[in-house]
Design a binder for these strands. Structure first.
Lengths: 139, 139
DNA sequence: ATTTATGCAAAATCTTTGCATCAAC
DNA sequence: GTTGATGCAAAGATTTTGCATAAAT
């Protein structure tokens, strides 16, 4: 099932409408080769109103179809989410994100929470560096 | 050595000046009982110019005297840094952060990077939940 | 004296909102 | 026909910048 189809069914389930502007935003997101900022999405969708793009991104994020990744400089980029709990490898060179899951890592995190008497409700792990492709390509 | 003294020596080392507005910002940060937003800092420092507060926070962050913590809603809060590499436990109830270090966790993260052929240059781990004090206090 | 920092106000960003109109159901 | 979504433009919020002045070294 493509992202657009998934989004369609997800939206319909909750009673949201399947409109032309939403389809356009979804197509643009699917077409984006790399994680994007809302700013970039806006530029690629001059035919859709600003507010609609913001509203749609927020909606898709809430539906867990888009994941929001905080970069080191404090800016936020979005990417199609493969869904579920995961972490990111973020390439400083090409900007691509790779999602991964790691149960051992999650277990270690739970252990830390326990050690501090902390009731863990969520966590985020972001790795920053250079991806394999860029390492190979770069000098 | 207090935070202010540390900041003083750190600034002087690099050739920055020890000015009254910077002292005021440092005092306000030290006095803050909890992690703060720039907004809150601005409010507590009406006698210092907006631009100066922003510039000082940026400077302190670059000097690693303040750490920046991204919250789940995308907002950013700052806290005095104990320095060095660490992670955070962030209480959703009281908003306090606790810093911790965990070499095993870091090792697991390095292992993930290696498995993906990723050259790791930095990472962030944030845990969200309810701290021990709030769990005890709250019903 | 020289150089850096400050304060102000304006500009530049970034995001949300109100509301009349339009489209989906 | 009802209800939710859109687009616009305006308002808000947030952060940065230019520049004359003031302060630190």
């Amino acid at each position: 099932m493509s992202f657009t189809e998934l989004a369609n069914s997800r939206l319909e389930t909750i009673g949201f409408r399947w409109t032309a502007p939403r389809r356009a935003v979804l197509r643009a997101i699917e077409a984006a080769g790399a994680p994007f900022t809302v700013e970039e999405l806006l530029e690629s969708l001059p035919e859709v109103g600003r507010a609609t793009v913001f509203r749609t991104v927020k909606l898709l994020h809430e539906l867990d179809l888009l994941c929001r990744v905080p970069l080191e400089d404090g800016s936020i980029r979005y990417q199609l989410s493969e869904g579920g709990h995961h972490h990111h490898l973020i390439c400083r060179r090409c900007g691509q994100f790779t999602e991964f899951t790691d149960l051992e890592l999650d277990a270690g995190i739970q252990e830390q929470a326990r050690a501090h008497g902390f009731t863990l409700e969520g966590h985020a792990v972001e790795l920053y560096g250079i991806c394999a492709a860029c390492s190979a390509a770069g000098a």
